[in-house]
Amino acid sequence: MQFSHFDIDLFLSDYWQKKPLLIKNPWMSWSNPLEPDELAGMACETGVESRLIMQARDGANDVLKVEHGPLAETRFGQLGKAPWTLLVQAVDHAVPDVAALIAPFRFIPNWRIDDVMVSYATDQGGVGAHFDQYDVFLIQGLGKRCWQVGGLCTADTPLLPHEDLRLLDSFEATNEWVLEPGDILYVPPGIAHNGIAVGDDCMTYSIGLRAPSRSELIEDWSDHLVGEMQDDDRYGDPDLRVQDNPGEISAQALADMHAMITEAVQDRDAFARWFGQYNSTRKNPDIEWEPEDPVQVEDISAFLAYDVPLFRNSASRFSFIRQSEVTLLLFVDGQCFACSEDMMAFAEQLCAQEHIIIDPEVPGSVTALIVTLINQGSVAFDQED
């Protein structure tokens, strides 16, 4: 899918991480990429993250109850007339047409894109007023949904007590729109919002973006560093002098120990390699995508000879870090591949496009890399071609 009209530069300068924006159907041709029954079927599968949110009455108040999947196939016939919402995460990993929704948003770097969550709601269904700590594009796929947006929330914003949902204790709408199929609402991090289905068969596609917190980065980077260190890398003071008071921790000792820490964490090259691997790790790394029979270099020669497209796995993550004009590091599903000059064009193209056709005369180093990526389940040739 592609946009027919959307001013990316204006959006980035005036709205990105600043204020919400309603984008009226910008698609060249909008068609809902997933049927409600298909979404319900996914929610019944093991290994798929799904939630069923039901609205109930508790005295004079509405209460949201959450049921986690996998759901029984008979569950949807037992829901009755009360409003309910089904949420399924990472649908783009399993449905190519849903994954295609991400392509027009690639003006955001790959490493920032998380997944596509799909929701289905009956009339008046929703998940309550809340805020997210990341940017989100809310695409109306089927039916109508009324979106209300409010003010900026922080970690101190009061929440209602709930085991599964981060619901705002109070919510005051400052804007309200009814989205129809193809319309998009952009919501920056921290902005309160509330979506309510208008009529039945309401489907919304949420493209969520990743925003690692400072604490997450420090914790995971530090864990990585500690795992790489040797036990005998210890503090030493061969120039020790007698102190006036043995109870004092001297300024020199503090400076030396502080240097031990800062020297390790300030290695930018090591950080770059770690972050590329950390950030490119699949959302669901336990799912096995490897082919049943590993391929060899000679197995792919026919695909190259007949210009068969090489497709990226929609569940995989691709990015690269340029080291110099003739080298870069390619990161695919948590693995790092050092690419020399003869491999750079392939690596850059692979990160930029969902599928590519490879020159049969490609260097052997590229062929070997393709074999590795196929065997780890990150790419595959289109067998139909």
Results as ranks from 00 to 15, higher is better:
Q266G: 10
N175V: 05
L240H: 13
I113M: 12
G195P: 11
H162C: 03
Q78A: 11
V88I: 12
W111N: 08
V332C: 00
S206F: 10
E163I: 03
I300T: 01
I196V: 15
P238N: 01
V326N: 08
S4F: 12
L225S: 09
V136P: 06
P246Y: 04
R51V: 04
P83W: 09
I249M: 13
G236R: 15
T157R: 08
P294F: 00
W16R: 12
A103R: 13
A255Y: 08
H355D: 11
C153E: 06
C153T: 03
R317G: 02
D132E: 06
G128L: 01
P246Q: 08
Q140F: 04
I370H: 00
E292Q: 13
F271A: 14
M344H: 00
S365D: 11
Q335S: 14
I184W: 00
V187Y: 05
L310S: 02
P181W: 09
M260T: 08
L310H: 06
N194T: 04
Y205C: 00
R75P: 03
W289Y: 14
Q243I: 12
V116A: 05
T122A: 06
F76R: 01
L12E: 11
F275I: 12
G80F: 03
Q133W: 10
L71H: 14
Y134H: 04
D307H: 11
S378I: 06
D156L: 13
K19L: 00
H355Y: 12
K144D: 07
A347R: 02
M257F: 11
V366S: 02
A272N: 15
G208E: 04
D237F: 11
E35R: 14
Y186H: 03
D220C: 12
S206T: 13
I53F: 10
E45L: 15
G334V: 03
L350D: 06
V362N: 07
R145K: 13
